[in-house]
Design a protein around this nucleic acid. Sequence first.
DNA 1: GTTAGCACTCGAATACCTAGAGTGCTAACA
DNA 2: TGTTAGCACTCTAGGTATTCGAGTGCTAAC
Lengths: 349, 349
Amino acid sequence: MSLDSRKKQVLDAIVDDYVSTYEPVGSKALIERHNFTVSSATLRNEMAELEKMGLIEKPHTSAGRIPSDKGYREYVNSLMSYDNLTREERDDISRRIDGSVNDITDLIRTATDTLSERTGFVSLYMSPRLHKSFLKQLKMLMIEPGKALVVIVLSAGVVKDKVVRIPNFLTGEQIMKISDSVEQSLTGKPLDEITLVTVASSMKDTDLPDAMMNQIIYEAYTAIKQADSLNIYLEGENKMLQLPDFGELAKARNLLDSLSNDGMVAGYVNELHPEIEKADDSFMIRIGQEITLDGLQDCSFITTTYKIGDDISGNIGVIGPKRMEYSKVISQINFVRKKLNDNIKKLTE
Amino acid sequence: MSLDSRKKQVLDAIVDDYVSTYEPVGSKALIERHNFTVSSATLRNEMAELEKMGLIEKPHTSAGRIPSDKGYREYVNSLMSYDNLTREERDDISRRIDGSVNDITDLIRTATDTLSERTGFVSLYMSPRLHKSFLKQLKMLMIEPGKALVVIVLSAGVVKDKVVRIPNFLTGEQIMKISDSVEQSLTGKPLDEITLVTVASSMKDTDLPDAMMNQIIYEAYTAIKQADSLNIYLEGENKMLQLPDFGELAKARNLLDSLSNDGMVAGYVNELHPEIEKADDSFMIRIGQEITLDGLQDCSFITTTYKIGDDISGNIGVIGPKRMEYSKVISQINFVRKKLNDNIKKLTE
DNA sequence: GTTAGCACTCGAATACCTAGAGTGCTAACA
DNA sequence: TGTTAGCACTCTAGGTATTCGAGTGCTAAC
């Protein structure tokens, strides 16, 4: 499918108009708002052909046209021109993100919140995939008989902890000994090379009975593995209710229901970025029916990756109505990502 | 205001009918569904008087009556009979809550989720007020130059941690020394007796320059104080969209907007339980206009307290439409609270 | 104090109409 | 061959009129 230059212009104009007005675009309105040198009748002919190609469609016989999913796709792929952010936009984003200086999770969350605020849509981040990060520290602290806290520090600067159950009569000293021994032999190992076996062998010097060791090994192992669990964070769901696109209660319900299933959304975003280890700066864009996640067919997903060092990355992006200003949203995500990466670098080196 | 027995019956019947049908209740419908021994004309007279008293009202001239906020209040205060939960309900709640055995926060969250699932409304918990709990352990772990992790274990079995900044050239050994010294002198102190001064004096034996100490003191102090911060958790906002009460988009928006302001809701719930330290098992109920929190005047708040030991407690409850089955909801909260308290006891002793 | 009867009210539902925006098609034109 | 003016046609949104029925308050009789 290749469009001649005038068809491109027409499609471009229809998308622009429809995005800004949420009204089906007619041939007359098109003439008025854009400086076409042809008559409305000619445009009608062009529009009829664009419709035949499946790029635009009519809500009903005597209405103007709206872009189809395929139309948006064409627009995004080859028509859209990239916005440069204004000075103010850049400053605002910088101010927000640079102001978040605590830890890396805070930073990523702030970046995500910023995205939602600035776009008015839902924003999301996926926690960094940590299986390539390596263990920097592991401490077990006795909390009370039968309970210990495992604290794990990863190379990415991420700190995780988990309360685990331990045999009741273990003393604080014994725990410390085990802790030291595990730490010593696992430090420097990437998470994905840590298995039940490596954990077990890290404890082989301790002089405790096997049954007891098994419990500790298992708990330590799950504490470590949990550090690599995939989390998603969504922000700004309610903002979507302000959009006319979700002005019918049924649609609004549907949207919120779908978004409330964090796990499903996380799984989908994960699928979109299959080789996230080798992530470059590209964007994944999914529009309307392209989204294989029930109930979000009025939306578009735009996601990309942020990086912690060379091996570790996670995703950040926006879920908005498919009727959105793609170039603007993409530019904003892009700049937010840049600021995020910069700040992560500052924080971890 | 005291109602004669028949007026009570009528009000009771109106509330019951309206709650179950969401239709204004007319005199005829009342006769049909309840076995009154008088005619509809008599009921009309009674209803006119109830209206004069402000207990019921008409949406418009020729409609049936619906309870006013004052009517619900009267109903809750003196008419309502308490439901006993069915065997199944009790079993379901027990199963869910007993199944959550990890840590105390998990447990409280599970209880809250259960409430939302079972009522179909929004449920909430407020984190336990910890200022009466005392410090059991405090450890500072060096993560990397300039950064340490402060881990705090409280008497309530709560573990908190925070990454803090420390002077760059402090060694792990120095940190451990400071940590030991702080722990030794603060252990056993209730949180609300720990101040900048007590923290500072706990470190007086260390031989570091003052400027450096100030930073550590401050960081340690904020880490400790942060353990006592008031958090709220809300669950099930979307479920409210299923209710006819919020069937208009404007109302739905309004509701979700109001609920999304966690801080405001937390502040309000906190106000409702002013002397939470001396909490008994009573319920706080706020209906419609009684709620001094913008945008939630179509709702009712029902909250109560859970306990961790004798001195520490938090809140748990439900936000639903004011048109709800109060007795059922209260019974459920009550049973959930009981199970929650039981499990907390098991977990902390 | 209770009740039957009745005129009255008002919202919800339905049908009907109109205005207007937009279309596709045809025939003329460059 | 591509472009355009003209026109009949379509369909929605919005407004008006009408009807239906549930419910009310009031009166007068029991």
